[in-house]
Write a protein that binds this DNA or RNA. Sequence first.
RNA 1: GCGCCCGUAGCUCAGCUGGACAGAGCGGCGGCCUUCUAAGCCGCGGGUCGCAGGUUCGACUCCUGCCGGGCGCGCCA
Length: 577
Amino acid sequence: MLLTRLLSELGSASIRDGLGVEADPAVRPAQQPEHGDYQLNGLLALGRSLRRPPRELAAAVADRLAGHDPFERVEVAGPGFVNLRLRDAWIAERLGDVLADRARDGVPAVDRPETIVVDFSSPNVAKQMHVGHLRSTILGDAIVRLLRFLGHRVLGDNHLGDWGTQFGLLLAGIKRWGSQVALEGDAVAELERIYRLASEAARADEAFADEARAELARLQSGDPERRAQWQRFVEQTRRTLERVYDRLGVRFDLWLGESSYEAMLPGVVEELLRRGIAREDQGAVCVFVGELPEAPEALRGRKEPFIVRKKDGAFLYSTTDIATVLYRRDTLRADRVLYVVDVRQADHFAQLFATVRAMGVTMRLEHVGFGTILGEDGRPLRTRDGAPVTLEALLDEAVTRAEARLRQAEGLELDPAAIGEVARAVGIGAVKYADLRQHRLTDYRFEWDKLLSFKGNAGPYLQYAYARTRSVFRRGAVDPDTLAGPIVLREPPERALALVLLRFGDVVHAAADGALPHLVAEHLYEVAVALSTFYERCRVLHEDAAVRASRLALLAVASRQLRRGLELLGITAIERM
RNA sequence: GCGCCCGUAGCUCAGCUGGACAGAGCGGCGGCCUUCUAAGCCGCGGGUCGCAGGUUCGACUCCUGCCGGGCGCGCCA
């Protein structure tokens, strides 16, 4: 159930009946408990446009609203708010519906499913993943899960950087510094080493740079030997990547790297030229995006071009990105594409979108940007020696630290054999939660002690809250899936918990619509807090049958919602900890 | 130079797209384990929402200017 939608519909109908106009009732959860559970703010705005006193309008609407089933109290307050207090029994019944809805936990699917491509993670071949890829991977995965849960056909696509200039450098570098032994060992680390040497050499030594360009030309013209070498790079890299994705629990539907679009590139440039969207300038083919009628405000009048072919004839990632848009439209039949990419690339996407709009592309394209992960010093996260932190090392440290914390915890309900598994779930969950906790656009500070603190708003707290619910079911020897209530709300903590739980549908929809997983994180934290308070004040198992049945049912909804919410964020729920 | 983003409690962050006295976590102070996990709960203290104007019945939210910080801007991705 979407509580806000339900209340909005009642609100709109009451405005229609009472005032004879169509208007958004602007339903919001009440800020203060004295104001009730929900409030209508819409009459204030309406007062202005109708030039009538808002309180008068609010009174008319409150009148129409008052009779309806959900409300215990409807009252006009302040300058023209309508405060709504929901009936305990109504809340309990709706929660009963959620309890019965085992498939969706009360979150309705969207009315109109779409095909949505989510472009995320997208690391480079021949490089290890480092923290720079963490947010795209975690955020992208959560967004995929959210959209998919709402019934969309979602294609998570790992748009690998598997084509381009770096391969010329790599091929030339291998000839010079490659070690067959090392390549058979940790191939990606070796490739990375060679790449570093080669890119340095290319800067210092023109002859070597030429050599690299020649290698690239041979690769791109289909030389079989180089092609085979490249293929090996891709395969070796993919194996290394899969190891990290496995640990993170991340899956893709597609691995269509940049090389997949190679054949389309000449055609893209031709079309742009033919249609007059691009023109040659200083030997390069450029789209002067600032001149396009499709240009957004921020790009209007900009002089810098969007270059789609270099003066040496080579294509760029801009070209590939255009081809990718066309492929996603024509072959994947996407309605929407989400690019989960660092916000610093906002200009690139603005240019890309304006260019493809000029080509007649109408599907929804959205750059889902995100901020930078900062170290404890407030600068972008790096190792002591300035190198980017690899994801593998980061995850290792998270698990190690989690295990150390678990071992020093008192009252552990864990047999030693299970510690490793729980440490993995807690460590990795903590890293993910630290990322998903705040608005994706803000830069955030990565602080080990905070994210693994095991107290306050951190990943382990949510996992702990879930584990506690499971513990009650175990101790009571009840199967939560067979509980049927009925739920009766007796104590304030029960009502507070129930009300929070009823918001889940609204939250999941809002999070999916805005690609804002932090809304789910925030909600789960509220559930956990409400649950802890409930737990503190209300006994469950040692009560008489009716109270016990009701509280177990309430707990079952909370338990499932935590599990579902964590799953939507890609965080493992733990049975015991 | 042009453009984008940010500035909210000592620290880390929310603030639902203008609404009722601005919220949470950490840290500080004080309480609570003979009852289903104290990794918890309850309470207290803490903010001129960078500054100055403007629009509005009403501004953390919208507009303008300034200050401070981050980032992006022809042939890398």
